[in-house]
Simulated assay, not measured.
Amino acid sequence: MTALRAVFWDVDGTLADTEMEGHRPAFNQAFRDLGLPFHWNKELYSELLSIAGGIPRVSIYAKDQGISLTEHQLNRLRDVKREHYFSRVREGHVRWRTGVVRLVNELHDHDVQQWIVTSSGGPSVQALLHQAKGVLPDFDGVVTSDDVARGKPSSDGYCLALKRSGVDSSCGIAIEDSAVGLKAATTAGLPCVLTPSPWDLDLSDSCDLATAVLNHLGDQNNPSLLQQGPPCLDGMVTLNYMESLLPHSRP
């Protein structure tokens, strides 16, 4: 049995590039459909990503614009936006980040549990996983915003995933891309591999919390660049490399 018993994956920006070409255009189309005077360009959306969860993001932004949306309006917006997001996933606008397919399959082949822990809602996650059939093996479990009272940066999602997995945090690793995700994972006691999203403006002040920071997970023809942490000699985050990051493996 490997020393690494579980890997806990964030979704948006970590497993796949879902934000800029998935969620953002879907929100903009939903705003148009419902007659809301909002449009999120990439620069604005980058700033708004510091707010975890799509509907909290809309609610806070609307209030900043002097518009108070009712619960009914927010629920309707969520449903319409989801349909547009599902369409974009089916049409291939959302792509896996470099190294994800390779690493998920390697971990699966070595019987390492793999869990999803995300601030997104269950239907959005399931839409993405449906497209992954035949590319990624099934995950052992999924914890979404529907399962916890507080999303990231709260550690609630990771704590629940640890409990359900039966794995101690010293034998697990989280993979994240954002400041809020990094805080959530490390507060739950998990070492964290960080593959930063370029639009997260808060990351520069948080990177020291990560056990390793790389631009992506790396593939044979596209090696990763290490920014912080132990040397990653193959230019790829592998099972062996992740095991070297565990607390009992580090000097």
Rank of each mutant, 00 (worst) to 15 (best):
K42L: 07
L69Y: 12
M236A: 06
N41Q: 10
S87P: 00
W9G: 02
A132E: 05
A185W: 11
D12G: 08
Q228G: 03
N105A: 06
F139C: 01
T187C: 10
L194I: 07
L160F: 03
A3T: 10
G53A: 10
S119H: 07
F139T: 02
H39T: 13
V7W: 04
G235T: 04
A212C: 15
G151F: 11
P251D: 11
S119W: 10
L160R: 08
L203N: 10
S68A: 11
G122V: 00
A62R: 02
N240K: 07
G141I: 10
G122Q: 13
A185F: 11
Y241C: 05
G13P: 09
G172P: 03
V135K: 09
S204G: 14
E243G: 02
A185C: 11
V104A: 10
H130F: 06
L182P: 03
L69K: 12
V117N: 04
T195C: 13
H248Y: 04
S50I: 09
C159N: 15
N222I: 12
V11Q: 07
S68T: 15
Y158C: 04
N215T: 14
D138F: 01
V193R: 00
A52W: 06
M236E: 09
R78V: 01
S204Y: 12
E43W: 06
A161N: 05
P231W: 14
D17N: 13
L49Q: 10
G54H: 05
R5M: 07
E83T: 07
T14H: 11
H216F: 05
D208G: 00
L203A: 05
W115G: 10
P230S: 03
S197M: 00
L239S: 02
L190V: 08
G157M: 14
S145Y: 01
H72R: 14
Y85S: 02
P153C: 08
G172K: 04
V180H: 14
S119I: 09
T14P: 08
D140M: 06
E91D: 15
R5E: 12
S87R: 15
V7R: 05
G92P: 09
P137I: 01
G229N: 13
M1R: 15
L15Q: 06
L103R: 02
D208P: 00
K63Y: 10
R88H: 02
A132V: 09
